[in-house]
Amino acid sequence: MAFEYEKYLRMDKIPHLWCPGCGIGVVLKAMLRSLENVGWEKNDIAFVSGIGCTSRAPGYIDCNTLHTTHGRALTFATGIKMAKPDKHVVVFSGDGDATAIGGNHFIHACRRNIDMTLVVVNNNTYGMTGGQHSPTTPIGYKTSTTVYGNIDPTFDICMLAKAAGASYVARATVNKGKVLEKYITKGLENKGFSVIVATANCHTQFGRKNKMGDPISSRKWIADREIPLEKAREMKADELNDVIITGEFITDEQERTRWENYNHPIHEYTDAYKKIIEKAQKK
């Protein structure tokens, strides 16, 4: 049965500004279906974003929407969430926005485990500014600033989020919109900081410079590199070159009580602050 996206969209803004076949549209749709899954009131949701192609997403959603400065979306979002802890805050970010200029805010939002959901659309490049290399451009690939091949090693955003303390972390690709929806829904439901990475195609910028200038071949490039997390865990590092590992990196407390997470108690930040208020008022 068709999903009625109209319920959550500002229809006067559609068609959106993204290129034909852009993966961000698929992620936006997965987000809207997830909103229906969790059943939140539109008035109670704030969508926040920074700068970049992905950051234009909130403008299409019929909620309280905030399009901020480059990389800073999580800081505005943290202010909103702390001011109104009973409301829902969701952040859209691109790979450059979240892990380059906003890298500091990213790891600290994870560290606080504040009850927000971050969707990072990773298209391996800075699309809006003309296809420069980003912290997730794989080694050897060409971009408008790495015409001889990229030498900058990449971040794995999921590993980064996990190490920094996020309580739900998952990655899916735009080839699997239903999986994306499942992960985003779980992220929204998680009481804590959730990071969902959506590996997306940017054939216009990243693809064009790497012999996959159309959405179909760009999406195929993603599909060819996808390895499920369970399989990747059995493999050696040198076998995992130029791959996209998908799955749920952190799902539950069991995962978060492993020894790697030492000195990092599991509490959600707004809950912890409520206890501070109680303490201060008792004194």
Partner: peptide, 9 residues
């Protein structure tokens, strides 16, 4: 950023 967010809220 946080104070702008809080003020909007």
């Amino acid at each position: 950023g946080s104070i702008i967010g809080a003020s909007l809220a």
